[in-house]
Design a protein around this nucleic acid. Structure first.
Lengths: 320, 320
DNA sequence: GGCCCGGCGGACAACGTTGTCAGCGGTCCG
DNA sequence: CGGACCGCTGACAACGTTGTCCGCCGGGCC
């Protein structure tokens, strides 16, 4: 900027004014400055600007894995909102590792992001308290933060969705409904288990429940074990998109009526189509971003807790 | 940092040394400093650090759409490499809009990213020349930059992959093979058309080619038009994952032997399974990131042009 | 016992920007 | 005709960090 000022024969501050479109510069001078900028290929240094102004026009997003369609949809929605507010997006995948989540969040804080959107991997967010108190707005999506942190959250109706799924299967005449869920360490997994369990009531049977991170082997083993019971399941409820797909693959050939939590591309093209409880990742991302930008704009109201509805999408997979 | 220094009763620079693990601080002093840091909840301001050091430990990634599985896989691979090098990732989706691509890239440059990975949307990258000359390393992925820019590129063998697909269909006895591709403005689309055309030789028939951004309506119309020909196609070659899926949906019920460019999740679970030319988005992302970090580390060798192989994954969709 | 050396700590400038305030003409009004 | 005001421009400090350089102090050696 100093060079531009010299080239245009004006003071540093005048260049700054032109660059920022501030008033008080004669058109002829401004033109001369702009010409010098173009000639020298000058670009404003945002680091310095941030340092001075305190705003980075950047928000941080921590998700579980960008490559997972659920999170990449959410991610895109957040990005769109960021662009609308003139912000850029720093993205990081925690891979369900609380330590990694913490590192990412703190790295974002070091860069003084204007706000954070976090899909928490762990359930201890004490490390975030100083940041929140320092005024960094944060919104938690898909899962609530650890205890003792009263921050904005955007969740979906996990238990209600599970209830929808189970009731649909019950209505189909099933009494032995297995649940294959993700690790109980994951909030959404236990919530969905809760909805499943409460809806089943006394039909609940612990032997029909399996919960851990899905691998083809573990899912296959779970299915084998359950199908070998003297009173095997006649239908399946799968706890997230990845598990649904893994189950579909593990079943190759055999078929059990199935409802999956979370919609996925091509669910409708499989035969039979897969009935799912559809969440709205894009809606969640948009909602979280809206909330965050309201906070960034200065909204200091009490923490908001949004719970988005889910809906049952009936396809062929439960026909008797 | 000044506050920490005061609280610990030492000089500013001593705090800086402790924070950066530099030698020359007595353990007792260092401990006092660390205690003060913890007590005050101090976090280093990266903006100031960048300003001073010139390195941001951040790289920028411009892709077409994070929500597209191809790009989200690539994205994840780049992120993993970035983390390995202690960098964070700024991500932006251009949505095939050259103006948006330009804005994103320039916004990244303003933030002084250490390097850029770009899936170009446009074919005029003159705007990037000053940045490249200023020493910002850039790697282009999936598509080459516009003419006159000699930068590192990581592409896949588009024409070769198309040839694989067409030869597979020819071997299946087909002579009337239609090609449904994306807009000819997209490099990969025209390359795949070229491979298709050259492999077909005199079997090539312009009436069996349709190229534009796929919408359910346009794809349906293309299929209708082609199937109404007196000599209709007996097989399809689809130019990317999105088109393949759109075609599958548009065909509902009817069936034509099909090979798609780009693999996609569940392609194997459809019945029949969809034969595809599989690219390796993760490999492309990793390769691009490796190249970029070599440049960032100071490699000033001539531009490298990597072309990754593709492979034909035969599934059921071409059985006669 | 004095000198030199090494280990440690601190003062200061600089990175590139923006906010504050002051200066310098010219114009308008009394 | 003089003073006040306004439009434009510029000098300077400050943001928080790090690199450079200097000084202090204690110990070992001559």
């Amino acid at each position: 900027m100093k060079d531009v000022a010299e080239a245009a024969g004006v003071a540093l501050k005048t260049v700054s004014r032109v660059v920022n479109g501030e008033p008080g510069v004669r058109p002829a001078t401004a033109e001369r400055v702009r010409e010098a900028i173009a000639r020298l290929g000058y670009r404003r240094n945002e680091s310095a600007r941030m340092l001075r102004s305190g705003r980075t026009s950047t928000i941080g997003l921590v998700i579980e894995d960008v490559a997972d369609p659920f999170y990449s949809g959410l991610s895109r929605a957040v990005e769109d909102a960021a662009i609308r507010h003139g912000c850029l997006l720093l993205t990081g995948s925690s891979g369900e590792d609380p330590a990694r989540e913490r590192e990412l969040v703190l790295a974002f804080c070091n860069r003084r992001v204007d706000g954070l959107i976090v899909v928490p991997a762990g359930d201890d967010h004490a490390y975030l308290r100083p940041e929140l108190e320092a005024g960094v707005p944060a919104v938690f999506v898909d899962r609530p933060p650890g205890p003792g942190l009263d921050a904005d959250t955007v969740l979906c109706d996990n238990a209600g969705g599970a209830a929808l799924a189970v009731r649909h299967l019950l209505a189909g005449g099933h009494r032995r409904i297995a649940f294959l869920g993700d690790s109980p360490a994951i909030y959404t997994a236990t919530e969905r288990l809760r909805g499943y369990r409460e809806t089943l009531g006394e039909l609940f049977d612990e032997r029909l429940v399996a919960m851990h991170p899905p691998t083809p082997e573990s899912v296959r083993a779970d299915l084998e074990r359950m199908l070998a019971l003297e009173d095997p399941p006649t239908a399946l409820f799968t706890g997230n998109g990845r598990i649904t797909v893994t189950v579909l693959r593990a079943m190759c050939g055999r078929w059990l009526p199935l409802v999956g939590f979370d919609d996925f591309e091509l669910a409708d093209l499989l035969s039979p189509g897969v009935t799912v409880v559809a969440q709205d990742p894009v809606g969640m991302g948009r909602m979280a971003a809206d909330l965050l930008f309201r906070r960034i704009a200065g909204d200091r109201g009490p923490a908001e807790h949004v719970r988005l509805p889910v809906r049952l999408v009936v396809r062929g997979s439960v026909a008797r």
